[in-house]
Nucleic acid binder design. Structure first.
Lengths: 246, 246
DNA sequence: TTTCCGCGTTGAGCCAAATCATCCCTCCGC
DNA sequence: GCGGAGGGATGATTTGGCTCAACGCGGAAA
């Protein structure tokens, strides 16, 4: 469920460092003036990540905020006995690290080779204070995340296994569409079956079985293990909302 | 988990309309100057609510935001076949209606006789724009809600029935403590067993059984059906986090 | 091309919580 | 105090998804 800032995309002068940034149209940067954007860019630090490489751990002091420009990340928290809940996946354009706490309450790891920009939280806070439009975008983004979190509570609290997987796939499809700006029928699964299971409150075996069920009902096709084609979007939506026939 | 604004409580001149407001110390109003606070007060409208009385319905145009000063509310969404997920309970001091959408994505109803202040969203947006400190408080509040939502995802996705009820009770206890400012051993349950079940992703029967289990383990005592005394807080915390013995 | 390793799939049996059924208790109104 | 209604508790049974186990397959390295 990507966040989409509002308002017109600021045009940049030739030679601006953010000129070719692939995610600018879909992040908080969208609304920034060339000058301010350059300030922000100078404040940031790019970090490349390999699959499974951690960005930060639960309990680390919350000294940085992040923006993903390439790849995919997962965010999760652990219970004492190893049970894990993935609370979200991050895709290019997503902004991360929003917290009032002194320590991160989650762990973040790369799913794929990724490029991540980080900002000192202290410097970023000053930047936000000096740029009310950024504060507004952050607030909107947080409100958006909150709405998404409520949807996920419905999924985790009340949906069946098949409904959870169908809902998740629709969300991934819609995210791809909002980024590309056109209707899509395919999407990637950059995470493992176990990651999906821990996001959906299921086991990896159940996820596998539900994939088989969606396939057998001709709602989707698995082009490869990590690429899905949606064959019957309306049917998938029906299943996601619990309108499905027995 | 109540939101607690930061910074010193603004002192008000005698005769200020918010002088005796019971929730000012625990809301976004805390940081407002007497003048600005009076503006906000003038913008607001008080509404009394009876138990089960709806405040708004899912799908209504999102034209108002709210602050609760007395009582308790529940927030829920429905699936097509009547399954219900309670996504939160509201207590005095809570602020509500934050959304970027044109329509509310949830329904709100009173649990108890309540007093609710509402503000036209349009007027409130203008007020926020004119008062950056309010925007900052709203952003912090949203970030706080987001952290709470992530905790609830862990609960719904990975905790057992007993752990869910124990976690919920600890949260209620902590909320009471943050409001009163001192250690508590008792708290109220203003909602029905069914409301609790729909919040915790369980059935009312299972909630009932888990209450009996917590009672039998001497972790809590039910003073009445809607008032709980915590007998063993550490034990309750252990159970909430899954550290419990078999 | 072959081999190997780990992820993914599929099957069998089990269990925690849901469902179904009944009873109880508390809180009203009279 | 009495009767009734509705929420809450408890017991019996069912079941969706988990656990445990075996196997398949695809991608990487040689």
């Amino acid at each position: 469920m990507p966040y989409s800032p509002t308002g017109a995309l600021t045009t940049l002068p030739a030679g601006h460092p953010c000129e070719d940034c692939p995610v600018r149209p879909i992040t908080i940067c969208r609304s920034l003036e060339a000058r301010t954007l350059a300030d922000m860019r100078r404040m940031g630090n790019m970090q490349r990540l390999q699959p499974d490489q951690p960005v930060l751990h639960e309990g680390d002091p919350a000294k940085r905020v992040f923006m993903l420009t390439l790849g995919a990340l997962k965010i999760y928290t652990l219970l004492g006995d190893g049970r894990r809940q993935v609370t979200g996946f991050m895709f290019p354009g997503d902004f991360l690290g929003i917290t009032r706490d002194e320590e991160y309450a989650f762990t973040i790891e790369a799913l794929r080779p990724s490029e991540l920009w980080w900002f000192s939280r202290e410097a970023f806070d000053r930047f936000v204070e000096a740029n009310p439009s950024v504060e507004r975008e952050l607030y909107k983004m947080a409100a958006h995340e909150l709405a998404a979190a409520q949807q996920q509570m419905v999924l985790l609290g009340r949906k069946t296994a098949a409904e959870r997987v169908a809902s998740f796939f629709l969300n991934l499809l819609q995210r791809g569409e909002r980024v590309s700006g056109r209707t899509e029928t395919r999407f990637n699964l950059p995470m493992s079956r176990l990651d999906m299971a821990d996001y959906l409150g299921l086991t990896k075996e159940t996820v596998s079985r539900m994939l088989a069920e969606l396939r057998d009902r001709r709602l989707i096709r698995l082009e490869t293990q990590s690429r899905v084609e949606v064959l019957d979007r309306a049917g998938l939506a029906d299943m996601a909302e619990g309108h499905r026939a027995a």
